[in-house]
Computed example of a mutant assay.
Amino acid sequence: MIKNIIFKKIKFTNFNQKKFNKIINKKGNFVFPAAPALVEIERSKYYYKSLQEADFVFFDSGLFVIMLKIFRNISVNKFSGFKFLNLFFLYLKKNNKKKILSIDPNKIISIENKKYFEKKGITKFYSYIAPIYKSKKITDKKLLKLVNKVRPNFIIINIGGTKQEILAHYMKQNLKSKQTILCTGAALSFLTGIQAPINKFYDKIYLGWFVRIIYNPKIFLKRYLYALGFVPIFFKNKIIIE
């Protein structure tokens, strides 16, 4: 079985849910780059470095998985942030004393996320509403101070793709101790119902992107057309199998 794929010096982990319990308590950055974000590996040095230095990079992108199979005859498991969070909440059901810090894009989403965690029996829940990070080189000393004070077991970043990975990398480089940081972006909003009504079925058949377009075409049609920019990146780079 293929363990890892090296693509543009980024190590992608071929992950399945049987391995979940083996890694969930490991420290490090867990990232789930979708196709629109993967385009940025050749356009943002900060984003590229955040993936290179992440501890676990999963195959969230259905486009990447399909292209690997069709054009390189390489089979890997698509493992989205949505699927990971479903397993994560099953884990928290048995470990509900864990401290969670949720980094959210606005107050409305923050309130809904708090309600969802409380519904799941998580009482040690902390929320941080992220500022609008205008620069691609993200810094946030206020966040560092909060994390060093709270010392959560898990940090979940729910802000947009590319920025969340850069923020996670910044924290990894500047926090006093290593943390478990989950860069799952919009996945939590799928569960709370704030975003598109994606479920396990749509995620399994690689149609999460399509549901998001139907739900909000003005935003997501443009985003997924942009994702096609990954196609030439794929063909001009080698794949190393581990």
Rank of each mutant, 00 (worst) to 15 (best):
E53F: 11
L221N: 08
N77R: 10
L225Y: 11
I24D: 02
G62V: 01
L191A: 06
R43I: 07
K69I: 04
K141Q: 12
K136Q: 13
R223I: 09
Y226F: 13
I241W: 07
G160F: 03
L51M: 09
D104R: 11
M1V: 10
Y206L: 12
I41L: 06
K134N: 14
A37H: 09
E40W: 10
K163L: 10
G62M: 00
I129F: 03
K136W: 12
F89Y: 12
I155Y: 00
K200S: 15
Y126H: 15
K26Q: 05
K124M: 09
L182E: 07
N16V: 00
K136N: 15
I138W: 04
Y116D: 06
Y202L: 12
F89S: 07
S135G: 08
F84I: 07
I156C: 04
Q17D: 14
E242K: 14
P217H: 01
F230E: 09
K134F: 05
F190P: 01
A186M: 11
A34I: 11
A227M: 03
K119V: 05
I74L: 10
F89E: 08
G121S: 05
F125T: 01
N237F: 08
D140I: 08
K114E: 14
I233K: 07
S102Q: 04
L51C: 11
L85M: 11
K78M: 12
F125I: 11
I74G: 05
Y206G: 03
F56H: 02
A168W: 01
L167V: 03
I111N: 14
Q173R: 13
K98S: 13
N4Y: 13
K94V: 03
N216K: 14
